[in-house]
Design a protein around this nucleic acid. Structure first.
Length: 706
RNA sequence: GGCGCGGUAGCUCAGCUGGUUAGAGCGCAGGAUUCAUAAUCCUGAGGUCGGCGGUUCGGGUCCGCCUCGCGCUACCA
């Protein structure tokens, strides 16, 4: 069996993680790795904090603390929270470590020395003269040309959500000095991704690498292959891998002072440095897990990371040479929260550590959440986390099905056999048949990354147990014939199934698994134990021996909708009340929202605008543009072609004859190949509905609007 | 406009390379049972598999067109 190297996306050490993150890249990996350990596989699972990038330095500046303060805080928080949820990384590293800096620099240097992997490009970028430094996109603020939001960043406007580039911003300002930045030339290194396009395509589409079969593409998820192919069928472009910034990994070249590796270049190398550190601490050789034919790499990520992990990082690894490429990248889609995206700024959703605090008095809260997230994992499409579903999974499946089953078996064992596993000469192979089939299916589900289905198999197994108990009904037999061997047989088999469940639950709900082991009075599971149990099951052997004494029954889960104790229910009610309050607040804000009044201008400014009345006399759609209409406007003294972004709301035939106001002295601009000579004035309401602003019918064309 | 993913019972979702009467859980209706946390077990009702057309002996499953949802991307002077 080959070694396995498993990675989970490195969390950015600039904030806490929410439930969606857990369900996306950490919980599935944990299930997978725990399972592999149980099967006795040689597996290493690494992760760590991603601690570079401009977002961290900007935040530090804003809060008057150092970047180090921020990354230390969130590294500790995220690491600790993962531990509390039983997320069992072998190593949780951080990219600010010296070992990582060295590893990333060495990686860069080796590619650089090959001569044909990188190219230098010089371009003009904004520069802050006072601080003597180039400005990363995030360091530039200005007015968004789309929505007039005055605090838009150079890479994105947080008000309208559109992506930006710094040059588009109106009145750009450096966030460092507050001055207007100047454009200045700077040189950066670009990774020539285009060089790798051909083999990448072969690799993703056919699973072929260097003329050999590397993996079966059918085992990859549709949306993963799909997104990769949409990139690979297009033209890949060289990507900048350096930035002008003072926080990060210095570019290890002469004359590259003030430049660092771009975070996305250094972050995935974090998987390598984490493995190195783990190997150092455990007396292993990291290269055994990264290089050669005896190892398999699997990346667990969210869908936003697909391109990095399936195209860019593999290209980097291949360019370096020797490294194994991932055999699968089981990216999950996104988890929403009660119908909307998780959003820290809007307070929508719940973070992992918040959950632990809010549910402090909820018994088995870790497994309750792990289970709910697993059963509703966004494996192939976006999913929605709802408290009602959380309650349902908990009370119906964990309590009613699994917990109840185990309790029934233990109670009956004590009732009829003084807490000892009875003896029986039944044919286990025969009795195991259906359970074995379900168990094999569960294992296959995990190995093919179908964790949602695998979790439901657990329920099928305990459901089989419940049905079996019901079919035999030992309590009925007991009334007529207390010494019947059928009772012993039934309990003997049921105890085997409970023992099996103690191991099968481990990857999913490890805290519960541990409890079940304790109730059965069996030792804690070790690596490889699951494998032994599965082969015993296959061979029809006993998993728990006759005469073995089990512990006193104890409930594994406390029902939420409990008639006698509403404490758990109240916790859920509190969460729901929070949601209702947020929704009310949202509606209120929505109603009160209005665009801020723009900065004052002079009358002279106003008179520069030449606005005239006009009438649309022709209109036609523009090819390959959803939102644009090509309009011909009669201004009385001339006719003009004007391109207007109204096609989503107005059909060409509806606007002909429309009276409009036109800004006529606006500089012409070409859009989708059509030159627009002016702008039609439109009113726009909160929902984006548009209305023409024009003189009444018959007013006449070409008159000034003042 | 381009690209990707999805549209299957009231709800949440499974259905691999096409093959007999389309499945599960929850919910609903009826029944059984009392070992068990009002838990469990059985039975039942419910779907023209988004729409139209095509390939095929046969299509939820393949192809084309259309439509709706989500995401990325271009365009909103």
């Amino acid at each position: 069996m080959k070694k396995k190297l498993v990675t989970s996306a490195l969390p950015y050490a600039n904030g806490a993680l929410h439930l969606g993150h857990l369900a996306g890249a950490y919980l599935p990996a944990d299930i997978y790795v725990r399972y592999l350990r149980g099967r006795g596989r040689d597996v290493v699972w690494v992760c760590g904090s991603d601690e570079h990038g401009a977002a961290i330095t900007i935040r530090a500046k804003k809060e008057g603390i150092s970047p180090r303060d921020i990354i230390d805080k969130y590294h500790e928080l995220n690491k600790g929270t993962f531990e509390k949820f039983g997320i069992s990384f072998d190593y949780y590293h951080r990219t600010s470590e010296k070992l990582h800096h060295e590893t990333a620099q060495e990686f860069f240097t080796k590619l650089y020395e090959q001569g044909d992997q990188f190219e230098e490009q010089t371009s003009k970028q904004y520069y802050d003269a006072e601080f003597n430094q180039f400005l990363a996109d995030r360091y530039i603020k200005g007015t968004c040309p789309d929505c007039n939001y005055t605090e838009a960043y150079g890479d994105q406007c947080e008000s309208c959500g559109n992506t930006r580039s710094p040059e588009e911003l109106i009145n750009p300002v450096s966030t460092l000095s507050g001055n207007k930045p100047e454009l200045k030339e700077t040189t950066h290194w670009f990774f020539k991704l285009d060089k790798h396009q051909e083999w990448l395509k072969q690799w993703v589409e056919l699973g072929m690498l260097d003329g050999k079969k590397h993996h079966s593409p059918r085992t990859w998820k549709n949306h993963v292959t799909g997104q990769c192919m949409s990139w690979l069928n297009d033209e890949l472009l060289p990507r900048a891998i350096t930035r002008d910034l003072d926080w990060g990994i210095p570019v290890p070249l002469e004359g590259a002072e003030g430049k660092v590796l771009y975070v996305w270049f250094d972050a995935p190398i974090g998987y390598i440095s984490a493995t190195k550190q783990w190997a150092l601490d455990n007396g292993k050789n990291w290269e055994d897990y990264w290089k050669g034919d005896d190892t398999e790499l699997v990346h667990f990520i969210g869908k936003d990371n697909i391109v990095f992990h399936c195209i860019i990082f593999p290209a980097m690894l291949k360019a370096y040479g020797d490294y194994a490429l991932p055999v699968n990248v089981p990216a999950n889609q996104f988890l929403n929260f009660e119908g909307d995206k998780f959003s820290k700024s809007r307070g929508w959703g719940i973070e992992q550590h918040e959950y632990l605090e809010e549910f402090a008095d909820f018994p088995n809260k870790e497994d309750a959440l792990r289970y709910a997230l697993t059963r509703n994992m966004p494996e192939n499409k976006d999913a929605d986390f709802k408290w009602d579903e959380f309650v349902e999974f908990h009370d119906k499946e964990l309590v009613g099905n699994l917990g109840n089953y185990i309790n029934r078996v233990l109670v009956l064992t004590h009732k009829y056999f003084e807490g000892k596993v009875p003896a029986s000469d039944t044919n286990l192979s025969e009795k195991y048949a259906e359970v074995l089939e379900l168990t094999n299916a569960l294992a296959a589900d995990i190995e093919s990354f179908n964790f949602k289905q695998a979790a439901s198999r657990l329920m099928e197994i305990s459901s089989w147990g419940n049905t079996y108990l019901q079919d035999v009904s030992p309590w009925k037999i007991y009334k007529a014939e207390p010494d019947s061997p059928l009772i012993a047989e039934c309990m003997y088999i049921s105890l085997q199934v409970v023992t099996l469940l103690s191991a099968l639950t481990e990857p999913f709900i490890p805290f519960t698994s541990k409890k079940i082991r304790r109730l059965l009075n069996l030792s804690e599971l070790q690596n490889g134990d699951l494998d032994t149990i599965l082969s015993d099951l296959t061979a029809g052997k006993a998993l728990i021996a006759s005469e073995h004494a089990v512990a006193q029954p104890e409930l594994l889960f406390a029902q939420i909708n409990d008639r006698k104790d509403d404490s758990r229910k109240l916790i859920i009610e509190r969460q729901k009340a929070k949601l209702a309050a947020l929704l009310a607040l949202k509606a209120e804000e929505e109603a009160a929202k209005h665009d801020p009044v723009k900065p004052e201008i002079t009358f002279d400014d106003f008179t520069k605008l030449d606005i005239r009345t006009g009438k649309i006399i022709a209109a036609e759609p523009i090819k390959k543009a959803d939102k644009l209409l090509k309009l011909t406007v009669d201004l009385g003294f001339e006719r003009r072609t004007i391109v207007s972004g109204i096609a989503l709301q107005f059909k060409p035939e509806d606007v002909i004859g429309q009276e409009v106001s036109v800004l006529v002295n606006l500089a012409p601009r070409k859009m989708r190949g059509v030159v627009s000579e002016g702008m039609i004035l439109m009113g726009e309401d909160k929902k984006g509905n548009l209305a023409f602003v024009g003189a009444p019918e018959g007013f006449g064309n070409g008159f000034g609007v003042k």
